[in-house]
């Protein structure tokens, strides 16, 4: 009998479920992210608008408080699709800023330091790696988008009554879908750029550029070609169109919601393709 057969004893104890292994790298990433005071400050700032909205909802159903503040009841905005559309616009912009700050640092360091080979040499697939990195952004962005959105919905339901909640249940669904779609798009863009652009700085600039340069070029296309299809490369406009459709809010002429959804799908597919080509254990240079 070979020596190794006599002496080698592999680990035979229990193993964690493979389904949840993608959560392992999360804890380290969060620990690192939350070390940054700037990010913690930004996260706190992201809660300002939801708090203001909650105050508005509370005041609009509290006549004595309104009277004490000498405000007319009509001065406060109505809590409807338009209200939540603007909520998503503000929180979505902040989610974008957070992605520009956090996203670039997610994949790039692993690629630069050869850590990907270490991850992938374990029973940890590329898909799990991407899911793990994506979960970091998804959870963080959820805390500033759909979670406070649903809390606002619940506050309104609590103030008005169960009937309002039943009649406007589509609003809760819209908040959830609108936020999750935006989070997924942002996460994929953040990860793809982090994987493709070698430096954290450059990847951050690229995330900003995708948004702002896309908007600028979109306008240029519209003006040169006398069309509205330029908006297709304006990520903000695309997302606003999708949100407006979900919240049944008319924004005036612009992109059609179908085109906007298709564009989002295309962006996601391109990002997934980009990630698939970069998230590999080994990069061959000739």
């Amino acid at each position: 009998m070979a020596v190794y057969k006599q002496q080698y004893r592999p680990y035979e104890g229990p193993r964690t479920s493979p389904i949840w292994r993608f959560l392992v790298p999360l804890r380290y990433s969060y620990a690192k992210i939350l070390q940054s005071r700037l990010l913690v400050l930004l996260l706190a700032l992201c809660m300002f608008y939801p708090c203001a909205c909650a105050t508005i909802i509370y005041l609009s159903h509290n006549s004595p408080a309104l009277a004490a503040l000498r405000l007319r009841s009509g001065i406060l905005p109505q809590v409807d699709g338009r209200f939540f559309y603007f909520f998503c616009t503000v929180q979505g912009s902040l989610a974008f800023v957070l992605t520009a700050l956090i996203g670039p640092g997610l994949v790039w360091p692993d690629l630069a330091n050869g850590a990907l080979a270490l991850y992938l040499s374990r029973p940890f697939a590329r898909l799990e790696y991407v899911a793990s990195k994506m979960t970091i952004l998804v959870l963080l962005l959820s805390t500033i988008t759909w979670l406070p959105g649903l809390v606002l919905f619940a506050i309104q339901a609590g103030c008005v009554g169960w009937d309002w909640a039943v009649d406007n249940a589509w609003l809760a669904g819209a908040i959830l879908v609108a936020s999750i779609v935006w989070i997924v798009v942002l996460s994929l863009i953040g990860l793809a750029l982090s994987a493709w652009v070698r430096w954290r700085t450059a990847a951050g600039v690229a995330v900003l550029a995708v948004y702002f340069v896309g908007a600028g070029l979109g306008r240029a296309i519209n003006n040169i070609w006398q069309t509205r299809y330029g908006y297709l490369i304006d990520l903000g406009e695309v997302m606003n169109t999708v949100w407006a459709g979900l919240f049944r809010y008319y924004r005036g002429p612009g992109l059609s919601p179908v085109h906007a959804w298709l564009m989002l799908l295309l962006v996601c597919l391109v990002c997934i393709k980009a990630l698939a080509s970069k998230v590999r254990g080994l990069e061959v240079v000739r």
Binding site: A112, W199, A202, A209, V213, G216, L217
Partner: peptide, 28 residues
């Protein structure tokens, strides 16, 4: 186009891309 895109976005982002990485890119 020059005013709204080129100056405000094109040159701006180009400068961030090129100049911010002159030293920082190589440090990274």
């Amino acid at each position: 186009i020059f005013n709204l895109y080129y100056l405000r976005l094109g040159i701006f982002f180009g400068a961030v891309w090129v100049f911010a990485s002159l030293f920082r890119g190589q440090i990274l």
